[in-house]
Amino acid sequence: MHSVSVAGAIVDTDGRILAIQRADNGHWEPPGGVLELDEDIEAGVRREIFEETGLSVHVDTLTGVYKNIKQGIVALVFRCVPKTRELRLSEETTAVEWLTPDEVAGRMSPAYACRLLDALDTGPPRVRAHDGHDLLAAVPLDP
């Protein structure tokens, strides 16, 4: 079985990216979570971001698809534009901060940092696999 999660890459006018620190494990990650069974993808992105950060957002562009090979979770990450500015904590977050790309790389495991850093690129969505912490090398397709 697979589950599908969604996350938002929200970039401010200074090029900083919004990140949360999870209350359950202390890890820094993009705001997001598992889609509900009857939920539209974009509605899930908006709900998860609002629940974890207090921000209302416009969901813009798909920037990446990421699979946790060990847990069978497929994550869809979307670049989002904030419609509000006031941040707040929730039961799921102990911190919500705007981070520079260097801070993202320093605070997050590679499997999560790449989701936000990939969203800074303007190219096609990235497709990556990871083990929950580290990225896994892509397997080339047979010609």
Rank of each mutant, 00 (worst) to 15 (best):
E92T: 10
E92M: 09
F50C: 12
A95V: 07
L99C: 13
T94S: 12
R16Q: 02
I20E: 00
V127C: 05
Y112L: 13
E92F: 08
A95I: 06
I73V: 12
A138G: 04
C114D: 10
Q71K: 13
S90P: 13
P110G: 11
C80F: 06
I20Q: 02
P82D: 04
L18V: 06
L141K: 00
R47W: 10
S5I: 04
P140S: 01
D14P: 00
D142S: 00
P124V: 13
L76A: 04
G106V: 06
P82C: 06
P125V: 02
H58T: 07
R128V: 14
D118T: 13
E92D: 14
D134F: 10
T84V: 11
N25V: 01
G33N: 04
I73L: 03
N68Q: 11
R79T: 02
N68D: 13
E91D: 14
N68V: 12
I49Q: 10
P110K: 08
V139M: 06
T63H: 02
P125M: 09
H2N: 10
V57M: 01
E51W: 09
P31G: 05
P140A: 03
L136G: 05
S5D: 06
A113L: 11
G123Q: 15
V6F: 00
T122Y: 10
E103H: 15
D24A: 01
R107G: 11
R115A: 10
R47I: 14
L89K: 03
A137N: 07
A119L: 15
P140D: 06
A23P: 06
E39H: 04
G15T: 04
L37Y: 09
R16W: 04
M1K: 11
S3C: 09
G54L: 08
L37W: 06
R85P: 01
T53K: 02
A7C: 09
A138Q: 10
D121K: 00
I17D: 00
A138C: 02
D60Q: 09
D12V: 01
R126S: 15
M1R: 08
E103T: 12
H27N: 04
V11T: 03
K83F: 02
H2L: 11
G26Q: 01
V104C: 04
A19N: 02
P110L: 13
R88T: 12
A75N: 05
L89P: 09
R126A: 15
G72Q: 14
V57N: 02
G64F: 03
V77Q: 06
D102N: 14
M1L: 10
P124L: 15
R115S: 07
W28G: 01
T63E: 06
V96Q: 08
C80I: 07
V96W: 05
I20M: 00
P30I: 02
T53M: 05
A137Q: 07
A113D: 05
H133S: 08
V77I: 11
R46M: 15
P143V: 03
F78G: 07
M1V: 07
E51F: 07
A9M: 05
L116S: 11
N68L: 08
L35N: 01
S3R: 09
F78S: 05
R126T: 15
A75Q: 12
D38W: 07
I73D: 03
H133A: 13
Q71N: 09
W98L: 12
A19L: 05
T53L: 03
